[in-house]
Structure formats: structure tokens, C-alpha cells
Write a protein that binds this DNA or RNA. Sequence first.
DNA 1: GCCAGAGGCACCCATATTCG
DNA 2: CGAATATGGGTGCCTCTGGC
Length: 263
Amino acid sequence: MECPNCKLNEDLEFTRKVVKAGILRGAQRYYCNHCKTHFSEKRKVKIENKNSHQITILDIAKHLGIAPSTVSKALNNKSDINFETKNLIVKLANDLNYKPNHFAKSLSRGNSNTIGVIIPNIERPFFAAVLAGIQSVASKAGYSVIICQSDESHQTEILNIQTLMASRVDGLLISHTKETSTFEHLKIHLNKGVPIVHFDRISNEINSSKITHQNKEGSFQLVEHLIENGCKRIAILAGPKELLISNDRLDGYLAALNKYGIP
DNA sequence: GCCAGAGGCACCCATATTCG
DNA sequence: CGAATATGGGTGCCTCTGGC
């Protein structure tokens, strides 16, 4: 132990002059009577990196005795690198099973290549089909998708948005809960320039992109098509409670039936 | 002087730690 | 207690070196 100011060694005189002065953030604190200053004990063991098992470009660089930036260039097919050096780096990366850290990539690039999706209920076939479509398109574009379920709870929807934004998603696709009537939790992010797209359940209160379908008109055309193709009797199956037909869709069915006088 | 190859530093950002 | 610093991985940009 040595006082950083006096630089005195740990002799008898020194031990008389330095006294323990409590614990500060896990480290022993001392007070030097000679120079009248406080100082902390240096930590002897460096805190291990929790992800130290993961191979990084630094490991590859150290192994080959070159700079990390050279490794980065080699692994990302940049032009200004020697062919043989590049081959050495790529071979070692393969041997060590190197995988890029996506968090660090998003840190430097400012984007995560990830899209957040919030749906009210994953059990509804409609949303399952929408998710399949989103996943397919996003994957082709090189994006990953994080899916959250609000479970028709406004509070859960807010928490989902906070979680997705903390994960630095590049954009958000959302279908609101039935409880949602205020949109401040979305406007904050929209004003910061985060792309937000509403689908299925939309609101005109918020100035975002919207994708919806016309239930009433679509249902009307569906029934009309059946009637014009010879159907005389039409049964409407409501299904289980969670799959009940929406009112506007039912209005469409009934309007078409009334038009053709079919009970 | 020009060019290719390589090195090194700042930056991104949140969090933990250190220090006065 | 607040300010300063370190940490993590990867990239962009600038600088340096050596060969021609």
C-alpha cells in the first residue's frame, strides 16, 4: 500500500500515518495524516468481462499481431488490405468460430437492423398470418424481428414500446390494444424520427403510416360474390369467443344479404 | 509525388468505477 | 456527490511507411 500523494512505502512510519476511512463503492478507503488526503485501495483483480468467452476481432488481431481495424477490414471485404493478410485473418476467424457482436455493430452504426412488432393477441389467426408476412419480408431485407404481445393491455403496450426502444429497434410496427385511447407513448418516439407503422387497428390522432383493410366493404363483396355465383343460403359461423366477427364485418355481410333479399 | 497497405485514434452510448 | 474515466466491439477517417 502506498499513498498516491506522499509515495511513502509501507514502513512503520507510514502505517502510523495512514488510517482506514471506511468503504467506498466496495473498495477500502484510507486517509493519509501526512498529506491530509483520502485515497482508495486499487482493485487487485480486474473484473472479468462477462462475455470473455466470445471471440472478438481484438482476439484475432492479438493472435496475428495486427490492428483490430485490419481484422475488421478483412472480415468485411474492404478493399485496402493485402490478399494474403486477408486470407490469414479469414482462416483464423473460421478456426476460432468468430461471430460478430451485433450489439457492438449497432453501437457503431447507429442502427440495429431490427424491427419491433407489437400485436394485441398472438393467438388470433389474423395476427399470426401478419407476423409470418412481416418475418418473411424483413428477413429478405436483412432485418431481424422482435415480437411483443400487449395482451390487449394498454400498460403492457407501453412497456413493450419501452423495451423495444431500449433494444434500439430501427422501426416499429404496431396494432393497438382495444384499451388504447391515448398515444403519447408513441408520439415521443415518432417525434424523435423513429419510423412507426400502424396496422389493422389505427388512429388518426397520430401522424404515422397506416395499413388497414376495409372490413365492411370486403365482407359485402365476399357475400355478393357468393350470391352471384348461385348461393341461395349462406351460413355465418362466429367461432369461439376470441374469434368473434367484428361489427363492421357483420354489417357488410348483412348489407349484401339485404340487397339480394336473402334471409 | 503517388499509391497501396497498414496502424491508430475518435466515435458511437450506457453503465460502472474511480477520484477529488 | 458530481465529474472524470474506463469499458465493450466495430467502423470511418486520417496518418504513416515503404516501394516505385
